[in-house]
């Protein structure tokens, strides 16, 4: 199956188990993680993941809500967006 790439971004206060939690949630939705980069900026945890959503059967809007709710419980802002928008804006 052709991959459909999306970008997951996580921003918020650093705490134990952010990566594990997000990865678990994604795995449950059959979303494959292709790349992760993560850093702490001024005490804030900032993570960017490239994922493949081709196998995920949950509608995108529901997925967005799921991640947002997961983040809100932990004081994190979590987004998922199709990769195309970033490519369009930053690549010629």
């Amino acid at each position: 199956m052709k991959s459909i790439k999306a970008i997951v971004t996580v921003v918020g206060k650093d705490q134990v188990g952010i990566i594990a939690g997000v990865c678990n949630l994604l795995a449950g939705e059959k979303i494959n993680v292709l790349d992760i980069s993560q850093t702490i900026m001024e005490g804030y945890f900032t993570m960017m993941m490239v994922v493949d959503v081709a196998e995920c059967t949950t509608p995108f809007s529901a997925l967005t809500a799921l991640l947002r709710a997961f983040g809100e419980e932990r004081g994190l802002v979590i987004r998922i967006q199709r990769e195309d928008i970033f490519d369009a804006m930053h690549k010629i």
Binding site: T9, S37, T46, M48, R79, E83, F86, D87, M89, H90
Partner: peptide, 12 residues
């Protein structure tokens, strides 16, 4: 691959 900086720039 678009850099993390660019991705957060778009989100901002």
């Amino acid at each position: 691959m678009v850099s993390t900086k660019r991705i957060f720039q778009t989100i901002e």
